[in-house]
Amino acid sequence: MPIIHRLSLFVLAAALAGCASTATQSTGAPGVQAAATPYRDTVELTGRLQVTYQKDGQPGSMNGGFEWAQRPGQIDVAFLSPLKQTVATISVTPQQATLTEAGRAPRSAGDIDALTRQALGWSLPVSGLRDWLQGYATDAAGKRFAATPGNNSVFTQDGWRLRFVSWQNGQNGAQMPKNIVAERSATATSDELAIQIILDPAA
């Protein structure tokens, strides 16, 4: 069974809707400009994501848990079932991206966009997520954007609208994203896509 069909069976909508914690802070509060957590090249994060997309004019969706492990030169992503079993993994290096599904031979491609578009029907924006998960982005003018609870929305250089909807306490009391929404309109080369990410409390 293709990964997109398996992952679409994940019953995580309730978790996505109700995962706010006492450490979460809503965005847009007047005068709130808490310091963002400094960017780290090595980081491990867990959470849930919900993807809705258009593929060849047809709507699709996916829900699931994930584990994100990032270090210089490599990113590893695991997609999880509701029982925390690994359904698939993605490994990305500067040379190639590899997708491994349970019971199937690994598939590789020169870049993650091509690989996930082929396998999932939508492109996982790993290069963007590397920044987004920590509250950073490259804006439409090519400048570094650091989100805060009081400055929480940006259009990126590669066509995404990001909203850092809520926040949680990170290391040393700094703020890190809790709920991120990334949306991209359809273009001549890409389909409409929206990704909601709910990050677990920082360890």
Rank of each mutant, 00 (worst) to 15 (best):
V181S: 11
G57V: 01
V87G: 07
R6M: 12
G65Y: 05
Q50D: 03
N179L: 15
A17K: 11
I90E: 02
I195R: 01
A119N: 04
T52C: 12
T100N: 08
A102S: 08
K84F: 13
A102G: 01
T116K: 09
A119W: 04
Q54F: 12
V181N: 06
G73E: 14
S108F: 09
G57E: 09
A147D: 12
F10S: 07
D200T: 12
T189L: 08
S91C: 03
G47Q: 00
N172K: 12
A20N: 02
E183V: 14
Q134N: 07
Q33W: 09
Q58R: 15
A114L: 13
I198V: 12
I195A: 00
L9I: 02
R184V: 07
L7E: 03
W167S: 04
N63M: 15
V126M: 10
Q58S: 13
A202R: 08
Q50G: 09
I197W: 00
G60F: 11
G28D: 10
A69D: 06
A29S: 08
V181Y: 08
T37A: 12
G103Y: 12
A182C: 09
S166W: 00
S21C: 05
A109K: 07
K143Q: 13
T46A: 13
P59G: 06
T156F: 02
L162K: 01
S123I: 11
W68K: 10
P125R: 00
L83G: 02
D191Y: 06
E44Y: 12
Y39I: 09
A15G: 03
T138Q: 14
T86N: 09
N172E: 09
Q85V: 01
L120T: 00
R104V: 04
Y136H: 08
A146K: 08
G64A: 06
R104L: 12
Q118E: 11
L133F: 03
G103S: 06
A146M: 13
D139N: 15
L12D: 03
A13E: 15
A109V: 05
T24W: 04
T86K: 14
V43E: 08
A194R: 10
L129C: 00
F164S: 06
M62C: 10
S8T: 14
V43T: 07
V154S: 04
F66P: 00
A35I: 01
G173T: 05
T46M: 07
S123R: 08
R163A: 15
E67K: 14
T189S: 10
V11A: 12
A203Q: 14
G103A: 07
W122C: 06
T22D: 04
D191I: 03
M62S: 10
A174N: 10
T52N: 14
P38I: 00
R117D: 13
A78R: 10
G128H: 01
R144Q: 14
L99D: 02
S21V: 05
V51C: 01
E44R: 15
T52I: 10
N63F: 15
W68L: 04
T187N: 05
N179A: 13
Q118D: 09
E192W: 05
